[in-house]
Design a protein around this nucleic acid. Structure first.
Lengths: 103, 103
DNA sequence: ATCGAATATCCATATATTGCAATATCGCAT
DNA sequence: ATGCGATATTGCAATATATGGATATTCGAT
């Protein structure tokens, strides 16, 4: 009934900043310069790159990213001292289906 | 880019109570007893019926309903001293499409 | 005109979210 | 071990949202 996962996901997308992040991550190559230690598509985009593009402070950006991770919409990957984030397309597709049901 | 309508709609559904309301309104006859002054399907469901089913106070329920109205997801219809609410299926379908784009 | 029922609005409180500064942690290099 | 860059966490102020009591408004009935 009150699916907690769906709840977190719908709250996660109820923010323009987080929607912006999800949108950028659709096509990382189009929005971010190539990286050295992680492949933009395979591993995801470095948190620092997202931060500077967002224009918010580092802790704030980290919080937004963790909300998206907790909702299962993006996946973090730690490589050396960096964390890369990429979309979880499967989870997002399931969420879209859930929306079709709940709406 | 930051579509205000989409913003309000995604915030509107980021609430279990409001999702619950939207769900009940999918099939009013299944969830509510027949009404005298307004047809459950044609006109919508009386606010008082929604209120008692939700179990929240009258002002709180009214607020939730107005959030959904402001988002354009449901339509109010005033008949005599009652207000009936029904889903705006067209707007909801458009919202679902927007979600497909934004997600 | 007055009353009662239904709904909307106003106000105050409680909780949640957003934002940033400061700080802690992690991982690599020296 | 020390330092440095990147990320995570904490603490706090500002803002937003949720909730319900009190009140106003609306509308029909008397």
């Amino acid at each position: 009934m009150t699916d907690p996962v769906f709840q977190r996901q719908s709250k996660a997308i109820a923010s323009s900043h987080r929607l912006q992040i999800l949108d950028w991550l659709k096509d990382p190559r189009q929005h971010f310069a190539p990286q050295i230690d992680g492949d933009l598509v395979e591993d995801g985009v470095c948190a620092a790159r997202i931060e500077e593009k967002l224009g918010l402070a580092q802790p704030t950006t980290a919080r937004h990213l963790s909300v998206l991770v907790d909702a299962g919409l993006i996946v973090p990957k730690r490589i050396k001292q960096w964390t890369f984030y990429r979309r979880d397309e499967t989870a997002i597709a399931m969420f879209r289906n859930s929306l079709a049901n709940h709406l």
